[in-house]
């Protein structure tokens, strides 16, 4: 994504609009700013998108590229409205966010087709801790000495 943004910004805005690069601009803007939503196609909008890319595009593209190396994958594609968190987009959710949502029970394991790295590890650690705590304490029974036969005193 970073390469695409740099390639667009190497050209001036009018050349981008009048060339096939305009499709790239729209695609790029949609991914970086609209969570995959449909952008406006008019020249005025494209100028606006170019300006936005110029200002924050590089930064966003870097973040976007970082997201691509994530391990988690949401089951449902699109914008997920998590009522106690906000919107999460299936294409840009990071492992960090996924872990936060899972740990705070705002998403469940069944919401993912692939869980983020580190989630199972954490779970295993917790499981081990619980197991350690619940390990039965071995009670060392003292061996009872056999009772010595005591003669009853004769009356």
């Amino acid at each position: 994504m970073l390469e695409t943004v740099v390639n667009i910004l190497m050209m001036d805005v009018e050349s981008v609009i009048s060339s096939p690069k305009s499709v790239e601009l729209l695609r790029c803007y949609s991914k970086l700013y609209l969570n995959g939503g449909t952008p406006h196609y008019c020249a005025e909008s494209q100028r606006r998108y170019y300006e936005e890319l110029k200002r924050t595009g590089i930064e966003r593209a870097k973040k976007y590229d970082m997201v691509q190396i994530r391990t988690c994958e949401l089951k449902h594609k699109g914008n997920v409205l998590i009522q106690r968190y906000g919107f999460v987009y299936s294409d840009t959710i990071t492992d960090e966010i996924a872990l936060y949502l899972l740990n705070n029970k705002l998403l469940s394991e069944s919401d993912f087709t692939k869980l983020p790295d580190g989630y199972n590890q954490k779970k295993d650690e917790l499981k081990q801790e619980v197991e350690q705590k619940n390990e039965p304490v071995k009670v060392v029974k003292e061996k009872k000495e056999p009772k010595k036969a005591v003669r009853k005193p004769k009356n």
Binding site: N35, G36, G37, H76, K77, G78, N79, L81, K105, D111
Partner: peptide, 22 residues
């Protein structure tokens, strides 16, 4: 507050899924 809602990509008025919190 107990349900997550997924909107169809690129839209804001089409819901594709509703899921329950644990």
């Amino acid at each position: 507050r107990n349900h997550n809602v997924t909107f169809k990509s690129g839209t804001t008025n089409i819901i594709e899924s509703i899921t329950n919190l644990p």
